[in-house]
Computed example of a mutant assay.
Amino acid sequence: MRQRGDERGWALLDALLEDETGHDLAALAGTVLGLPERGRYAVAVVPVRGSAWNRPAEAHGMRFLWRSRPDREIAVVALGEAGPAAVAALLSDGDPGPGGVSPVVDGLSALGAARKLADAALLTCGPGGGGVVGLDGRVAAALIAGQPALAAYLATDVFGPLLARDPADRSLLVSTLDAWLECGGSAGRTAARLCCHRNTVLNRLRRLEALTSRSLSRPRELVELMLALEAVRLEPSTWPRTEPEGG
């Protein structure tokens, strides 16, 4: 019935994706579409592109059911034994541009929640971002991306004091923080990544702490620094890039 484009089945699937509830809605959709009511599912969201691309129907034990929206394509994926990473890799190979994939959800009744999580993953790609991504390791970025006003406030509140610095200097300090976080807080690994001495990394981080009035050794303040960094990474305009006084 899926192949014949059964409108009833697609309408039921759309209702589930919009998080609608009703008596036996998931069971009815599963029957009409030939899907198990309980099982491992994920949802993928890909923005509509100007050029056509091949949407997969079945691959690696996964089954894709696609729905079109004015601004995006949505896939309900019956995962089988696969996981969200396999969905992201397959869609990235198809070169659809940026996209988001939800974590695994249990059953058709959870498709609405999965669609929202896929939307959140998509937001973490940022402007001009590419590749299809899941939420694994991106939850903080998703929280920031979903609150643009809060992101702008946090970026300015945390990094605002750096605006008085030379643009190259403030970029150096923020990029050192980024590398230090990526290296798990190891000054030695950060130095190797940035091709500088370990003491140089420590000096930059101390300057950053002094300018932001936040300590990397205090968990709450470290969280603020991390979230502010995500805000700047996702939307650079959240951090005003004014020149220092005097040019």
Rank of each mutant, 00 (worst) to 15 (best):
H23R: 12
A210H: 12
A78G: 05
A26K: 01
T124E: 09
W53G: 02
A78D: 11
G61T: 09
R63Y: 00
G61P: 07
N199T: 15
D14T: 13
G100K: 00
R218Q: 13
P84G: 06
S92I: 05
R69I: 06
R72W: 02
D14I: 08
P244H: 15
G100N: 01
A192Q: 15
A140R: 14
V174H: 03
R165S: 07
V76C: 08
R38Q: 13
I144T: 05
L111Y: 02
L194I: 01
P98W: 00
G134M: 01
E73L: 15
A114C: 08
G83Q: 11
D24M: 08
L65V: 10
R8C: 05
F159E: 00
I144H: 05
S92W: 02
A142R: 01
W180V: 03
R8M: 07
P56S: 11
L33F: 06
G130Q: 15
R214Q: 14
G99T: 06
G50V: 12
A151C: 00
R72V: 06
S109K: 04
R67N: 10
I74A: 10
R165Y: 02
N203R: 15
L205F: 03
D157I: 10
A168S: 10
P244Q: 14
R49V: 15
E182C: 07
V133R: 03
S109L: 08
V223I: 07
V232P: 07
L227V: 13
D169P: 04
M62V: 00
L143P: 04
E230S: 08
D119H: 14
P244C: 15
L123Y: 06
P161C: 04
K116A: 15
A78C: 06
G100E: 05
R72I: 03
P98C: 06
P167I: 04
R63I: 00
A168F: 10
L216D: 02
L227C: 13
S68C: 09
A89H: 14
A228H: 03
V104N: 09
G94I: 03
L35F: 04
V174N: 02
T190Y: 02
G39Q: 12
L211H: 08
C183H: 13
M1D: 09
G160A: 02
L12E: 08
L28T: 14
E58D: 10
V133Y: 00
N54Q: 14
S215F: 04
L122F: 05
V158E: 02
M226W: 14
A192C: 13
L205A: 02
A179F: 02
P219T: 05
D95H: 11
D157V: 10
A168I: 08
G247E: 12
E20Y: 09
E209S: 14
D93A: 15
S51H: 12
N54F: 04
R8I: 10
G185T: 11
S215K: 12
E245H: 12
H197K: 13
G137N: 07
R170D: 02
G100H: 00
A228P: 04
A149Q: 13
W180T: 05
L216W: 00
A42I: 04
H23W: 11
A26Y: 03
